[in-house]
Amino acid sequence: MTVRTEPVMAAALPKAWSAWQATGVVALLVIAVIVPFAVSSFHLLQLTMVVIYAIALLGLNILTGYNGQISLGHGAFYAVGAYTMAILIERAGMPYWSIVPVAGIVCFIVGFLFGLPALRLEGHYLALSTFALAVATPQLLKFHALEKWTGGVQGTFVPGFAAPLGLPLAWDQWLYLFSLGIAAALFFFAWNLLRGSTGIAITAIRDHPIAAKTMGINISLYKLLTFGVSAMYTGIAGALGALVAQFVSPDSFTIFLSLSLLVGAVIGGVASIFGAIFGALFIQFVPNFADQISKAVTWAVYGLFMITFMYLMPNGIAGFLKVIGERLRRRRNS
């Protein structure tokens, strides 16, 4: 019995890496570190956003892909992270690097609390309530009682800084490396979290909640923690995003942001850590590409790309690559 179910579970979880996979990751990191010295500042800005989106998508992926809770409202957590950064720099004068963990903690708490009603919601119901959260976010940010802190409709500027320790780097170069370092740490943390017993519990809840419960997994606690961790990731991404944009305003965090995040997570590939990177590349570059194809109907072209991707790869880019990889391996073995 156990033998039959084990491969299913194992397939869903990140495994220990083979030698060439580890080499690939190291090579990717080395290239990523060299990049800021090789490209124009505009391209650097785009790549910084890819890194930041990758963090946000990984957060969403932990919740939606591994735990099976669909969220169409992660833009709200991104916004909370961004506003935490802006407000604490402007009003409290804290150094930007110390705010990153604060934003993470704030979003963990917000996510945990939003997870409480979400505990009773499944599938479509959760999708709809988080959709409502995303639609309401700009209005909540404009709310006049909070205007003293948020800057209301006008938003708040976020200043730039100098690279630390007298490093000979421009602010945008430093910001890219800073984000990359945080992303690497968070990816490692997620990988470690998901391959251990916590990861098994999280995916077991997705695959069979009742069986998970009989195995003694505290479903409510794990779901809440997953929601919190997921929001924490997305919030940290939001905090970094505020530094990049140097500006936060309610209309930067519309429903469109939330939808983009979900699109990125699904197209990149759910329940895959590297899917987050593919998804981030998609939501950063495909709109630009669509814009080059047609200025008049950019978003129609983008929508066509989304539908085509889903038609060709229903399990996302990561899922598609996995199938290809397995086919190659089987051919080599036979």
């Binding site: 939606t64 669909i70 169409l72 599938g123 999708a127 939808l259 979900l262 699109v263 699904v266 197209i267 759910v270 008049a296 109907v297 950019t298 978003w299 129609a300 072209v301 983008y302 929508g303 066509l304 790309f305 989304m306 539908i307 889903m310 038609y311 229903p314 399990n315």
Partner: peptide, 27 residues
């Protein structure tokens, strides 16, 4: 075409149609 696709893929397809129709109307 998406009868047997995962739920999330279908959600993305609907969102894709949302973008397409919205953009066509604007154009």
């Amino acid at each position: 075409q998406f009868d047997n696709a995962p739920v999330l893929a279908v959600v993305v397809v609907f969102l894709g149609m949302l973008f397409i129709i919205n953009s066509l109307a604007g154009w």
